[in-house]
């Protein structure tokens, strides 16, 4: 008896699918209706799309005050390894540094998590995390109910193609487009099922 791998590959060859032509790629590589180099417009679109999701957007020249404002009401915040200390300088709550790794139960009990990101997409209001410095492991941005993410303007791409091109597929990636949501009950959108129910973005120049 042949093994499954050999048999499946044999069946694929036997199907004799003719060669395919190269796919046409005539779609846009930037967000429709705007000039990619017009940065203020790209950033305004990013903020608008995040706000549509119900995320809070705070635009500031430096992180500290805006982060403190975004964390208002939280008592504890998870801080991934590599997070700049000055981001939490204006905040008086408990900072839980994820080193040594916090127990899952500890993450679950934390009120908030503060991270950087690796890239963002204006058109879909998307934040992309790759676990790099200040971004944390995936569980840390999942269990606390409030996620505050600091984004630098230079990280914002107008549309997805630009962002995908700068990512490292070898790293575990999380694309976040608004807070956790469901429309499984009568197609009515409900915010907040398992992931963080609140999302705040601090957008730096």
């Amino acid at each position: 008896m042949t093994d499954a791998r050999t048999e499946i590959l044999r069946r694929i060859r036997a199907a004799a699918v003719p060669p395919a032509v190269a796919p046409p790629r005539h779609y846009l590589r930037h967000a429709p209706g705007l000039d990619e180099t017009d940065r203020p417009t790209v950033l305004a679109l990013f903020a608008e799309r995040l706000t549509e999701y119900g995320a809070t957007v705070l635009r500031a020249d430096t992180a500290a005050a805006a982060v403190a404002q975004a964390l208002d009401g939280a008592r504890s915040v998870v801080a991934p390894v590599g997070l700049p200390d000055e981001w939490t300088a204006d905040w008086s709550g408990e900072v839980l540094v994820d080193r040594p790794l916090l127990e899952t139960a500890r993450l679950d009990a934390a009120d908030a998590v503060l991270t950087a990101c690796t890239a963002a997409v204006a058109e879909s209001g998307t934040l992309i995390l790759d676990g790099g410095p200040g971004q944390g492991r995936r569980a840390a941005t999942l269990l606390p109910d409030l996620h505050v993410c600091v984004v630098r303007a230079s990280q914002v791409h107008s549309a997805l193609p630009g962002a995908l091109a700068v990512l490292d597929p070898g790293r575990p990636l999380t694309f976040i487009s608004g807070p956790s949501a469901t429309a499984d009950i009568e197609m009515i959108r409900v915010k907040g099922v398992h992931g963080p129910r609140r999302l705040a973005v601090v957008l730096l120049p």
């Binding site: 799309r49 999701y53 997409v121 058109e123 879909s124 209001g125 998307t126 995936r138 997805l160 597929p169 070898g170 790293r171 575990p172 990636l173 999380t174 694309f175 976040i176 487009s177 608004g178 807070p179 956790s180 949501a181 992931g195």
Partner: peptide, 10 residues
């Protein structure tokens, strides 16, 4: 425009 979460891993 995008679903809230897209996860990729290798």
């Amino acid at each position: 425009r995008m679903a809230p979460y897209t996860s990729t891993w290798t």
